[in-house]
C-alpha cells in the first residue's frame, strides 16, 4: 500500500499480550490508511480489536498489551519509534481522541473552557487569555454558544449530548490532522447520536480532517463514512467503499452483519443473527477465524488463513459472496 499523502497510514500492525507470548495476537497484521478529508469506519463486534487499534495509534495501549510489529505513520512521520516524551507532543496537537462516555472522559473538577484552553496552551503556547478565547470560539463552533460566553461550566452541569460536543471541541482544539472517534455515540440516545455525527462530519468536511470512526453499528458507518473496514477477531476481513460495501459485501461476515440490521417495516419473526460467538484470542481456530460460523465454509478454509484480495472491495475470503447479492 502506498502511504504517500495519507494522513494516517497503518501497516502490518500486530498487538499482543506482554505476558503470554505464545498466545495469538489480539490484532494481527492490520493495514489501512485514511486520507485528508476522509472518514474511515471501523466496524466489528466487541473484542474485535477496534479500540485497541485506536489506543495503539496514540501510544496508549493498556498495561499488559504491547505492539509486536507494524508501523503507524501520521502525516508521513513514523510514531512507533518515538519516545514517550516526543509522542506526547503529537497527541492532542496532530491527533485527537474522542471517547465513548463523555462524562467519565472529561475531567470532573475542571471547567470545560479551561480544559480546552489547557490543551491548546500546552501545544500552541500563547497567553491564557488567547487560549481562553480560542476555547470559547471552539465551543461556539461545535454548537455550544451558551457555554462560549460568560463563566465556565463543569461537565456534570451539561447534558450527554453537550458533553460529547465538548469532547469533540477538545479533540479539535489544536486543529489536528486526524481525529479518532471511539464509539462516540454509544452512550447517547438516537436523536443526539445523529447530531453528534453530523457535527463530526461537518468538521471533517470543513477542516479537511481525517477521521477514524469506530462503531459496532454498520448502519451509522454506511451513512457517515467514506470507507468501511470490518474487523473480526483481530483481523481485517473486508475493506471498501461505504456505498458499495453496503449493497454488495463480499465477505460472509460483512454480509451477515449487514443482514443482522433490523428493517422497518419489520417482516415479522426472529431478527437475523450470526450463529455462534467470536473466538477467544487463546483459542483461535486454524485457518480462517470466521470458518466455524461461516455459511460459505469449505474444507480449505480450515487449513489456510485467507489473504487480502481485491475484487470490488478488499477482502480476505476463499469463498466470497457473489458481487451483487
Amino acid at each position: 500500500m502506498t502511504t504517500d499523502g495519507l494522513t494516517l497510514a497503518v501497516s502490518g500492525l500486530t498487538l499482543g499480550l506482554t505476558r503470554d507470548r505464545r498466545a495469538r495476537p489480539l490484532v494481527e497484521d492490520l493495514s489501512f490508511g485514511v486520507a485528508r478529508g476522509e472518514m474511515l469506519a471501523f466496524v466489528g463486534e466487541s473484542g474485535s480489536g477496534k479500540s485497541l487499534t485506536a489506543a495503539a495509534i496514540f501510544g496508549l495501549l493498556p498495561a499488559g498489551v504491547q505492539r509486536i510489529a507494524g508501523s503507524i505513520r501520521v502525516n508521513g512521520s513514523e510514531l512507533t519509534t518515538l519516545s514517550e516524551r516526543r509522542l506526547r507532543a503529537w497527541r492532542g496537537r496532530d491527533m485527537g481522541l474522542i471517547f465513548q462516555n463523555p462524562l467519565t472522559a472529561l475531567s470532573p473538577s475542571v471547567g470545560v473552557q479551561a480544559q480546552i484552553a489547557e490543551t491548546y496552551r500546552v501545544h500552541k503556547g500563547g497567553t491564557r487569555d488567547a487560549a481562553r478565547a480560542r476555547a470559547r470560539a471552539l465551543l461556539a463552533e461545535v454548537g455550544l454558544k451558551a457555554l462560549a460566553t460568560g463563566g465556565d461550566s463543569y461537565p456534570h452541569q451539561l447534558s450527554g449530548g453537550m458533553r460529547q460536543r465538548v469532547m469533540i471541541a477538545l479533540a479539535a482544539a489544536c486543529d489536528p490532522a486526524l481525529i479518532v472517534a471511539d464509539e462516540p455515540t454509544t452512550a447517547l440516545d438516537v436523536l443526539i447520536q445523529a447530531q453528534i455525527l453530523d457535527l463530526l462530519a461537518r468538521l471533517q468536511r470543513e477542516r479537511g480532517l481525517a477521521v477514524v470512526f469506530i462503531t459496532h453499528d454498520l448502519r451509522l458507518a454506511a451513512r457517515y463514512a467514506d470507507r468501511i473496514l470490518v474487523l473480526y477477531a483481530g483481523r481485517a476481513v473486508e475493506e471498501g467503499d461505504a456505498a458499495q460495501f453496503f449493497t454488495a459485501p463480499r465477505h460472509p461476515y460483512s454480509r451477515a452483519l449487514r443482514d443482522a440490521i433490523p428493517t422497518i417495516p419489520a417482516t415479522g419473526g426472529r431478527l437475523t443473527e450470526i450463529p455462534g460467538q467470536p473466538p477467544e484470542p487463546r483459542a483461535l481456530p486454524a485457518g480462517c477465524r470466521f470458518a466455524p460460523r461461516c455459511p460459505n465454509v469449505g474444507d480449505d478454509c480450515r487449513r489456510t488463513e485467507p489473504a487480502m484480495t481485491f475484487d470490488g472491495t478488499r477482502f480476505a475470503c476463499l469463498h466470497p459472496c457473489a458481487k451483487m447479492s
Binding site: R91, R93, F99, P108, T119, H123
Partner: peptide, 26 residues
C-alpha cells in the same frame, strides 16, 4: 483508573500536569 486520565494523556498533557491539575483535585 478513570477515563479522564486516559483522555488527558490522549491530549498530550504531561504526567505532572495530569497529576497536579486533574487527579489531585478529585
Amino acid at each position: 483508573r478513570q477515563d479522564y486520565v486516559r483522555a488527558a494523556r490522549s491530549r498530550g498533557l504531561s504526567a505532572l500536569r495530569i497529576a497536579f491539575r486533574h487527579v489531585l483535585r478529585n
